Computed example of a mutant assay.
Amino acid sequence: MEISARHERFELARPFVISRGSRTHQDVVVATVKLGDRSAKAECTPYARYGESIESVIKQIEGFSDVLAQQPDLSAKSVQQELVPQLPAGAARNAIDCALWRLNAGTNFPAPLFDIKQQITTAMTVSIDTPSTMAQQASDLCDLGAKLLKVKLDDKLIIERVAAVRSAAPECEIILDANEAWEHEPLTELFTSLNEYNIRMIEQPVPAGKDHLLKGIPHPIPLCADESCHTSDDLAKLVGCYEMVNIKLDKTGGLTEAIKLAQQARTQGLEVMVGCMVGTSLAMEAALPVASQAALVDLDGPVLLKHDRDNGLVYQDGLILT
C-alpha cells in the first residue's frame, strides 16, 4: 500500500469572515491511497487554530507512508483498524481514514456501506460584515432556497447583526456561531436578548478550555460545542455546559471516530450537529454517513467556493441532493 499527499487551492466565491479573521481562498490537502490496481482519494483542511498547516499535514501523511512501508502484509482494513488510530486526531488522520473508507468501499461511497438520506438540509453561511450587508447575504441565500442559516458573529454588534439577518430571513431557521468570541460578554443578558429572534442554537460562545463559564448560566437557546469537542474523549467535560456537539471530520480525525463520537454523544443526551471546514465536495461526501442521522447539518463548504470539483455534490434549495 502507498499513500501520497498534495496541496490544492480553491478560490472562494467571496471573502469568508469569522471572528478569527478573513480569507479569499481555501487550501486543502488531498491524500491518495493505492493498493495494487485500486486507488482512492480523500480531502482534509488543515486548520491553524489547531496548530496545523499544509506543510505539517503533508508531513504527517508522508510519515504514515513510511510506517506502511514497514508493514507490507497488512490489508487495507487492518491498516485502518490497527495503524490509523495511532495517529493524532486531526486533518491528516481524516484524509487517511476517509481514503481507506473509499478504498474498502470499492466504486461507491458512502453507499452501499451507509444508509444516506436522499435530501439533507444544510446550513448556508452568512459571514461577518455590517448588519446591512449580512442582511443582504441572508436575503440572497433565502432567494436561493436556503432553509437554515448559520450566522457568523464576533463580539461586536451582536444583536444588531442578528436582528438584521432575522428581518431579512423571517422564515429561515437560524443558528449562530460565535467562534469562541463571547468570553467577556454578559452571557445571561445576551442569551436572553437573542431569544427574541427565534434562534435554534448558539455555537461555541466561549473559548475551548473555558467551557466552565457556561455552567449555571441560564440559556433559553441550546448551546453547541465546536472547538471544545474533537473526539469522544472530550465528551465528559462538556456535560452541563452544552446540549449539542458539532462533529467535523477534520477534528475527529476521520469518519471512524466521527461515528463513534456521534453514538456516544447521543448516549449522554447530547444532540448531534455535523459541520465542516471550508472544502470541496470530496470532503463533504465523507461526512454524509453521520450527517444523515444528525439533528443539524452544516456542510455548505463547496457553496462558498468559486468552483467546486467536477461531479461534486448537488446543492439545491438549501438541500444536499445525494
Rank of each mutant, 00 (worst) to 15 (best):
T122Y: 03
K147R: 15
I120H: 03
P88L: 04
A123N: 10
L144S: 06
A111I: 12
I159F: 02
K77D: 12
A169W: 04
L153W: 08
R102F: 10
I128A: 04
T121A: 10
Q118I: 11
P170H: 01
M124I: 15
G106P: 01
L148M: 11
A95S: 00
I159Y: 01
Q119L: 09
A95N: 01
L83W: 05
T122L: 06
L176R: 00
L141A: 09
D97E: 13
G145V: 11
A168I: 06
E160K: 12
Q80T: 07
I96L: 03
K117Y: 07
P131N: 08
D73R: 15
S167R: 14
V84C: 05
T125W: 08
C142N: 10
L144H: 08
L176E: 05
P112G: 09
P72R: 06
A76I: 13
C98K: 09
P110Q: 10
P131A: 07
A99K: 03
T133H: 13
C172A: 14
S78A: 15
S167D: 13
L144V: 03
A91C: 10
A105Y: 07
V151F: 00
N104L: 14
A163L: 05
E82A: 10
R102C: 09
D140N: 15
A89S: 11
A138P: 09
A146F: 02
A111H: 05
W101S: 02
E82I: 14
A95F: 13
T130H: 00
Q81N: 12
S75G: 07
G145R: 10
A169G: 04
Q80Y: 00
D140W: 08
S132H: 14
T121F: 07
Q80P: 02
K147A: 13
L153R: 06
P170T: 03
T125D: 04
A92M: 10
K152A: 03
M124D: 12
E160T: 10
S167I: 12
L74T: 12
G90F: 07
N104K: 14
V126N: 03
D154G: 08
Q80V: 08
C172T: 14
V162L: 06
P110I: 09
N104M: 15
L149K: 05
L153P: 02
S132C: 11
P170R: 05
A168W: 04
A76R: 02
M134D: 07
V84T: 09
D129W: 09
G106Q: 00
G90W: 05
E82R: 12
T121R: 14
A91N: 08
S78E: 15
I158N: 07
R166E: 00
K156F: 10
S139H: 15
A99I: 09
Q81V: 13
I128Q: 02
Q86A: 11
L83I: 04
S132V: 15
A76Q: 11
V162E: 00
L113S: 14
D143L: 13
I96E: 01
T122R: 00
L153H: 05
R166G: 01
A99W: 03
G145Q: 08
G145I: 12
P85A: 06
L83M: 05
M124G: 09
F109W: 14
A105F: 09
D155H: 13
W101L: 03
R102W: 02
S167Q: 14
I116H: 01
I120E: 05
F109R: 07
D129C: 02
S78R: 14
I175C: 10
F109C: 06
L149Q: 02
P170A: 05
